[in-house]
């Protein structure tokens, strides 16, 4: 229906659009045959190659991710171990710093509490004054 109507349209418009002087060429013509004479073989190889590369790439990526996640897990574990070790060392330090522990350690070393100190005051003229009454250690 549509075709016949357009055919009719052409009949109603006999005058061509292009000027008469132009060379009349067919609306469609054959292009020269493709110069690619290698055939389909290489293309298949290329696609296959890409496929294999892609698969290998994915495999490598997956392996790397898996290896990394193992490593991350190991590091987390190591971190936790080190944190525990640090915590235990800190605990020893804190316990060692406590007055009770220090007093005991000092006693074990045969140390005694200091007695009352005396103070040596140096005057501007170089003379000295002893302030306070020094008491030897161990005497209270």
């Amino acid at each position: 229906m549509a075709a016949s109507s357009s055919a009719r349209k052409i009949e109603f418009e006999p005058t061509p659009r292009r000027p008469a002087s132009t060379v009349r060429r067919p609306a469609l013509r054959l292009l020269p045959a493709s110069r690619n004479t290698l055939g389909r073989g290489p293309f298949i190889v290329l696609v296959l190659g890409l496929l294999i590369l892609g698969t290998l790439g994915l495999l490598v990526l997956n392996t790397v991710i898996a290896a990394d996640s193992f490593r991350a897990e190991q590091l987390v574990q190591r971190n936790a171990e080190l944190a525990v070790a640090e915590q235990e060392l800190r605990r020893q330090v804190a316990e060692g710093l406590s007055p009770e522990a220090l007093a005991e350690a000092a006693r074990d070393l045969g140390m005694v509490a200091a007695g009352q100190p005396g103070f040596v005051v140096v005057n501007p003229d170089g003379s000295i004054v002893i302030q306070g009454t020094p008491v030897p250690a161990g005497i209270r």
Partner: peptide, 17 residues
Amino acid sequence: KNVMTFVLAHEAVAPTG
């Protein structure tokens, strides 16, 4: 006396003289 003696020595407070 006992504790204040310790405090003065520990905090290095010299007698005023």
